[in-house]
Design a protein around this nucleic acid. Sequence first.
DNA 1: AAACATTTTAGAATATTTCTAAATTAATTG
DNA 2: CAATTAATTTAGAAATATTCTAAAATGTTT
Lengths: 140, 140
Amino acid sequence: MTGTRPFKHALDRLQQAGLRPTRQRLALARLLFDKVDRHITAEQLHAEAVDAEVQVSLATVYNTLHQFTDAGLLREVVVEAGRSYFDTNTSDHHHFFFEGSGNLQDIPGESVTVAHFPSAPAGTRVARVDVIIRLAPEEA
Amino acid sequence: MTGTRPFKHALDRLQQAGLRPTRQRLALARLLFDKVDRHITAEQLHAEAVDAEVQVSLATVYNTLHQFTDAGLLREVVVEAGRSYFDTNTSDHHHFFFEGSGNLQDIPGESVTVAHFPSAPAGTRVARVDVIIRLAPEEA
DNA sequence: AAACATTTTAGAATATTTCTAAATTAATTG
DNA sequence: CAATTAATTTAGAAATATTCTAAAATGTTT
């Protein structure tokens, strides 16, 4: 069975974000962060929670994902119309997107160089630079 | 008033794509291509058509946008969850995305260099490289 | 013009996300 | 530790964007 140790980790994250450690948030934080980096949708996370017998509504999953994103614990990745992925890797990096399967894969920030793009228009600042390398199945 | 000349242009595009020049497709092609490059949603294009007294349903606008995209006349740009933009500029280029207003602006392909990214995983080929520079309003 | 294939259409269906107001839970206070 | 207050969770409704369906209309070919 799953030990209790990982609670510490999840709890730290919540405190770092200034979010009350409620039962739902703790459980979701554990599902999200006690594993290797991942890209997950709200529906998927909700299914995982139900699977782990964590009682949480889909609305709370959405709320929590957005709170975590605002707090910088997650990053929202948009690659397909009508579906948001939440990335537990918040470091500077980019993505491969497999158009066939809809899967995402991280590319470390150092592996891609985006050089000399125009400076941000007046009144704006660059919030982020997203590089998405879209992959299609190889032709025969 | 609008002349009849532009029909030629739109018609050429349809033929080039192997699409029957129906009334709706012609009208939409004119709205899309007889102007400077643009980024438009299905709803927006439908509104423009209604405005121009072109009788066309929203379903047809969606069908047509996808047919044009498949034919390479348009390019779909996904930057926000739950909303697709269609870009009449199909040449190699990238985008500024203004998070405040939701506006898109082209960046010529030559203005950005994406250097030495990992090669495509086995069995895949790079369909496209999207660079999205997300802009936030400047802080005070 | 008749026959056939393609396209268009309205409206229903689906999918994802957000909203709402009531119920619950966590934190604070006495 | 009970009472009070504030934050959170919830189910379900609502909103939003898109796709589907099957019938009607249109375009093409013969």
